[in-house]
Design a protein around this nucleic acid. Structure first.
Lengths: 137, 137
DNA sequence: ATACATGCAAACAATTTGCATATTA
DNA sequence: TAATATGCAAATTGTTTGCATGTAT
């Protein structure tokens, strides 16, 4: 998902495109990885003195609802990233910088048979560690 | 891990074996799946009027530290289960009752090569849904 | 002009901590 | 009795909500 798609999606659904909304999109596009509400507000405080967590959370929640962002929970905090809608995949997530790398392997095919009488509703496969950049430093 | 092993482990490390501590172990042994602090306190309140969350959390934390329990985060709440130390595996987790089923498939072998320059520190593979019991009901 | 967005303040839920007291080894 | 466990109360952290006001369409 890119900024233009996201803005169109918001407009389609009747949401307004404010400066903050655009800047949030820009932030996540540039981030290319998982970020927390705290990360985001720290960034936005530069441009928007007095911006509050409720706005942050309301927008994160909205973006998550409409599919602009996807989220995962790490150490008791929600982390968000631009949604990659193109195809099913998983992520390596850098513990240091939050950047992600797509992992094409999905183990679900192999697993199905052993869960014959179960109703599978979802799954999560994530790999954590240090990306080459953070590993080097 | 069974209750006896757990108690020995606690004693070895100089921790005391109180009635609550034993009951917590019994609870998780019987549960055979993931449970929250809330689940646990609800159960313990029957036997221990006035038991408080701080005791619950302190013990969950302790058990997690020494390896009696393992934990995962689901919907903003920590969930705990008896630690299965015997071998590496993953879990199917029932969204309804929290019971788990071991999954022997681990995708990490296939993944290694695509992360050549990364330092892998951990991974998570969980499947969510309904177990046969809850599916039937 | 009207609906949606935001700030403020306050509430919430999950979890943690300091301190005094109670209990186990 | 000496060290650990617990309860109480209060604090912390992450997140959400009601309400009045501000702003985009």
């Amino acid at each position: 998902m890119n900024i233009k798609e996201a803005i169109d999606l918001l407009k389609d659904k009747g949401y307004k495109t404010t400066g903050k909304r655009k800047d949030i999109l820009a932030y996540f596009e540039k981030a290319d990885g998982y970020r927390t509400a705290k990360d985001l507000i720290t960034y936005l405080e530069n441009s928007y003195e007095g911006i509050s967590f409720d706005t942050i959370y309301r927008n994160l929640h909205l973006y998550n609802e409409v599919g602009i962002l996807e989220s995962t929970e790490l150490n008791g905090e929600k982390h968000f990233r631009m949604n990659c809608t193109h195809h099913h995949h998983h992520h390596f997530i850098c513990n240091e910088c939050g950047k992600t790398k797509e992992i094409e392997v999905c183990p679900m095919d192999e697993v199905q048979q052993s869960l014959a009488n179960y109703a599978i509703e979802g799954h999560k496969f994530e790999i954590y560690g240090l990306c080459p950049m953070c590993k080097g430093a």
